[in-house]
């Protein structure tokens, strides 16, 4: 494993598999236990440095670190020196002086974790940067798929929605490809980046044509405000062409699953009855997020492998 986890490409197939296997072992070791805590990272300090509000991701990382007995410091940009104009570099030097062993960073600017990694000695974990990547989300998604379907090799995954602005899509395309899955991106052409043709994924504009041929459909959050910048004419038209409702879900193969990284816009990209259906893994994804992030923290902070 590399020292930092900044993007999906930091993990080769062996590394990614190790993370998933480790998460599975942790899940197994902790299942049914009253004491959900492991002493592994006792005396280590994990800083959650969040420049964007993201309660669910922060809590997931916080729980992961605490279950490994690390000391956790939450450093939220709001109300701190950061909001008073302190630069990312000065914040990094402060964390360095405090002896952070790992910095989990969420930032609205793509590449901010890369910059941070150049300024601190500890491990940097990207918890989502701008429209770039969110590698632990991809890991938990891959873990969820593997648990449900028993494999990743050859699994057909459709990622549907605002690929252009989605860090989840970028990380998933990279990681799922690394792990042998076949990804199809489905979106209106306005929400696909120029240059998407070089990604290791198929591209389609037609959700109905893709659904019967996939094992996994991953719905991305689409902000209704995008219509103000003419990415699509209206929420209603978007939902009609690219939303997953019960009728469309019926076109999926029998054991196909429905995923969503959250937070959902019910009624926009996903209908409520789909989100709550037996195919939906949305709640599992949250639980799997904790064990996957425990695995990441353990593997990054455990020191260099033997």
């Amino acid at each position: 494993m590399k020292r930092h986890l900044l993007e999906a490409a930091d993990l080769d197939r062996d590394d990614a598999t190790l993370v998933l296997d480790t998460a599975a072992q942790i899940d197994q070791a902790l299942s049914g236990r009253e004491v959900k805590k492991l002493p592994t990272l006792r005396g280590r300090t994990v800083v959650n440095l969040f420049y964007e509000d993201s309660t669910r991701t922060r809590i997931s990382f916080e729980l992961a670190a605490k279950r490994l007995s690390a000391d956790v410091i939450n450093f939220s940009a709001k109300g701190s020196s950061v909001s008073k104009g302190e630069s990312l570099k000065d914040t990094a030097l402060t964390l360095e002086a405090m002896g952070a062993d790992a910095v989990v960073v969420r930032h609205s600017s793509s590449g901010a974790p890369h910059r941070l990694a150049g300024w601190v000695r500890g491990s940097v974990v990207n918890a989502g940067d701008g429209t770039h990547e969110h590698p632990t989300q991809a890991l938990l998604d891959a873990y969820t798929i593997r648990r449900r379907l028993g494999r990743l090799e050859g699994v057909r995954v459709a990622i549907v929605g605002d690929v252009l602005h989605s860090r989840v899509a970028r990380s998933n395309v990279g990681l799922l490809h690394t792990l042998g899955a076949e990804v199809t991106l489905v979106a209106p052409p306005t929400l696909l980046p120029v240059g998407v043709g070089s990604w290791p994924a198929e591209v389609s504009y037609d959700l109905d044509a893709v659904l019967p041929k996939v094992d996994v459909v991953m719905m991305l959050r689409v902000q209704a405000e995008r219509m103000n910048a003419s990415f699509f004419p209206s929420a209603r038209e978007y939902s009609r062409r690219y939303g997953l409702d019960a009728r469309r879900m019926g076109a999926l193969p029998d054991d196909a699953i429905v995923m969503h990284p959250g937070p959902m816009n019910r009624g926009m990209e996903i209908a409520a009855d789909v989100a709550d259906s037996a195919r939906s893994t949305i709640v599992e994804q949250v639980a799997n997020g904790v064990s996957t992030r425990m695995a990441v923290l353990y593997l990054l902070l455990g020191g260099s492998p033997q």
Binding site: S110, G111, G130, H132, R167, R170, P193, V194, G195, S198
Partner: peptide
């Protein structure tokens, strides 16, 4: 816009300058 719009901007998640 942050960088040239193309394959790299798509991957790096930086808004493209066409």
């Amino acid at each position: 816009a942050q960088m040239h719009e193309g394959e790299r901007s798509a991957r790096l998640g930086l808004t493209g300058w066409p």
